[in-house]
Design a protein around this nucleic acid. Structure first.
Lengths: 192, 192
DNA sequence: TGTATTTCTTAACTTAAGTGAACGATTTGT
DNA sequence: ACAAATCGTTCACTTAAGTTAAGAAATACA
């Protein structure tokens, strides 16, 4: 599991043994049970998450209804808005499956980055990359219909459709669960 | 105009005179006429943009139709996907108004960041902040209807509705120009 | 294992967005 | 200043998503 982390990091920077050990000494690895809520609305947390195995999601509760807006799976990194702005969270973060996550908090990062400026470089590269990638996702969302979005998801993250409940997928696609059911039926009819 | 830049930077890091002069010596300031296309589909550019005055937009041409997905106005920063991934661009970038932009290219940045590691820190802070902010925007988009999105825009960026053509706004809101017209008429009726 | 709860699907009806077309208003270029 | 092109609005019609409700299927858990 540690290897997965170092392999991921090696795409950005090269670590020597000292640096690797410094990382490992931080007690970042956590086993998290399905359904565990990592962050709640209103809460102030400085934690960041990185998925080694499993899946977690971000959701809002609007008018008593859950609206899932993001899923994070293997090798995805996520720092909640509240950790960056030191505000309280607008959303919840919870585990979709039993998972192994890296959980680091901002104070920790400051210290590591002071000792090893390399990490700062990596974080910069990573967030620039994520920013650009997310913008593409947003653009695709804006320029396509719910049906196209579903077909697109089927292409790009086929695993999600298997591992995640339909009603969570629906709001991720910006529609109601009933509409997702109907839309899938429509696609199946077209194929036959 | 330079003051605006330094004021912006001061939110992240503190620059001494040497550092300020190093920045100014780079010939970053550009006056750009309305309608100028800064980046085309298929083009490979390493330029990043920062708006001191004016407005530019990002748009795709899909099935011969322009789909505007983003507007950048005063103090907004934007690095295209192609500059980060060294690929060719999927979209166009063009000026909505006569503007004053900072245009920097990646090689330039590498050099400046080598001389002044501070800039790297700032870039990291900025892109983390933008990443989190953009995610909130995306979440709001997913969880609301076209009408809500329009009303939301009216609140958050009222200037955009004045300075930008309706048909560009429409695709920014994820709908057709006719639907935007109708939706606005509907809102007006409700108010009366 | 059996019961309660949650989730998924289907259906009928309502509402709003997409489409194609027309027309006046505005802007652009010469 | 004028003609041409672009843009914004309206309309009638089509298509798809929202809503409400009901029942079947899957899941949780005691």
């Amino acid at each position: 599991m540690q290897d997965k982390l170092f392999e991921f990091i090696s795409k950005y920077i090269t670590l020597n043994e000292d640096e690797k050990n410094a990382l490992l000494s931080l007690d970042l690895f956590h086993s998290v049970k399905k359904g565990t809520v990592l962050l709640r609305e209103g809460q102030q947390s400085l934690d960041s998450y990185f998925v080694l195995k499993g899946c977690f999601r971000v959701y809002y509760i609007i008018d008593g209804e859950e609206k899932t807006t993001a899923f994070y799976t293997e090798l995805d990194a996520f720092t909640p808005h509240c950790a960056i702005n030191k505000t309280s969270s607008d959303y919840y973060v919870s585990c979709v499956e039993d998972s192994i996550l890296l959980i680091s908090n901002a104070e920790m990062s400051v210290e590591v980055n002071r000792k090893f400026p390399k990490f700062d470089i990596m974080c910069r590269m990573l967030s620039e990359e994520l920013l650009a990638k997310q913008r593409i996702d947003f653009d695709e969302f804006k320029t396509s219909s719910p049906e196209q979005r579903y077909l697109n998801l089927l292409q790009k993250r086929p695993d999600l459709i298997q591992r995640v409940p339909q009603h969570q997928l629906a709001s991720y696609l910006g529609i109601k669960p009933q509409s997702l059911s109907r839309l899938r039926a429509r696609i199946l009819e077209k194929k036959i």
